[in-house]
Computed example of a mutant assay.
Amino acid sequence: MNGPVRILHVFGAMNCGGAETLIMNVYRKIDKEKFQFDFAVNTDIPGYYDNEIKALGGRIFCHPSPKDNIIKYIQAFNNTIKYYGPFIAVHSHVHNFSAIPIIIAKFNNVPVRVAHSHSTLGYHGINVRNVYYFICKKAMNLYSTNLLSCSSDAAHALFGKGILKDVKHQILLNGINLEVFENILENQNIGYIKLGLKEKSVVFGHVGSFSYPKNHKFIIDLFRDILKKIPESHLLLIGDGPLKKEIEESTKLMGIYDHVHFLGIRDDIPQLLNLMDVFIFPSLHEGLGIALIEAQAAGIPCIASNNVPKDANLNSGYFEFLPLNNDFSQWQIKINEALQSKENIISPQERFELIRKKGFSVDSTTKILEEIYG
């Protein structure tokens, strides 16, 4: 075969989520003389990464939404594999629904078929929906050649108990690009000025899509409580999503809008992280939390909900897991501790070396995927 082999990644859309960002980090690093990525999405609405994908030589195949018409989706996906291949691998990132593209890939003789779990969202009980999820799990386990998970919790949620002993399964850590953190400018004054902050401001932050699992309502309720005790506080919310307008309106009704900065999707996240004093991550469920890895790379004290997998704590400095409830007193205590803990954060060189050793560098992730595809 002349030229690189092609891998088809399956997503809902190529927007700026954790799984999409992980694969784009790998895409930028991977040897493109050997491997080329294409993307199958379930929408014709342009995604955040679409232009970069095309610039890197990738193709984007838009399929009908399976929620609207599953038969049309199956036909379209099957045609993509038949007429736009050959693909050496189909790598699916759409949780339970990965069963469908994996089965289609199997019957089109795609040699490498990867189902990838990025979430701890699980399903329990007996009803029609959960029977469907059970069948999907069995199909993925049967027809995939490789099963990947970002954490052991994410593995159990999608593939079932005992999956960690399966020879087809392995944990693939969400690698980040450490180079951008190594090159962060230390001068924070420029960032403060751009955001209209004063140097004495206490800055809290969160990175994540405005969607139900990220729990932005908890963040702004907590921040309102913080603001009563620390009036010079500001909150940076980085990301976009369906609930953004609702959260914006809530901050206005609470009277805290002037202290909350909705920054949208950004390509300067390392610089913005460098402005924060405490990183807040109260997810309702989470595969791992790549934003937490980035926050630790930037040397920020982190406070996360205990729904986040324990693997997210790299032991690089202050990190707390707390329960979610309506009483913010425990969060306030830990926030005060975090604000006093910056001197306990290890040096940048030590942080970066720790992250590499633990396998959270994108170089490690890319190497593993090259071995799977190759």
Rank of each mutant, 00 (worst) to 15 (best):
V131C: 13
Y132Q: 04
N127F: 08
Y123E: 05
S117T: 12
N108L: 14
I104H: 03
Y133I: 13
I103G: 01
F107C: 00
R113Q: 07
N130M: 07
N130L: 10
L121Y: 12
K138T: 08
I126M: 07
K137C: 05
V114Y: 10
F107I: 00
A105E: 10
K137T: 08
S119F: 12
A139M: 06
V110R: 04
K137V: 11
I126C: 13
I126V: 15
V128N: 15
N109F: 13
I135N: 00
H124D: 14
F134L: 09
A105S: 06
K137E: 05
G122Q: 13
P111Y: 03
F134A: 08
I103D: 00
V128C: 10
I104K: 05
T120D: 08
K106W: 15
I104D: 01
T120I: 11
V131L: 15
C136K: 03
K138H: 07
S119P: 09
I103S: 02
R129M: 13
S117K: 06
R129S: 11
I103K: 06
V112K: 01
I135V: 02
R129G: 15
G122W: 09
F107Q: 01
F107N: 00
L121H: 13
Y123P: 03
F134I: 07
R129C: 08
M140N: 01
G125A: 09
Y133R: 10
N108M: 10
P111S: 02
V128W: 12
I104Y: 03
Y133G: 09
V110Q: 01
Y123S: 01
C136S: 06
A115M: 00
I104W: 05
S117N: 12
H118S: 03
L142W: 15
I126R: 10
Y132V: 11
S119W: 07
A139V: 07
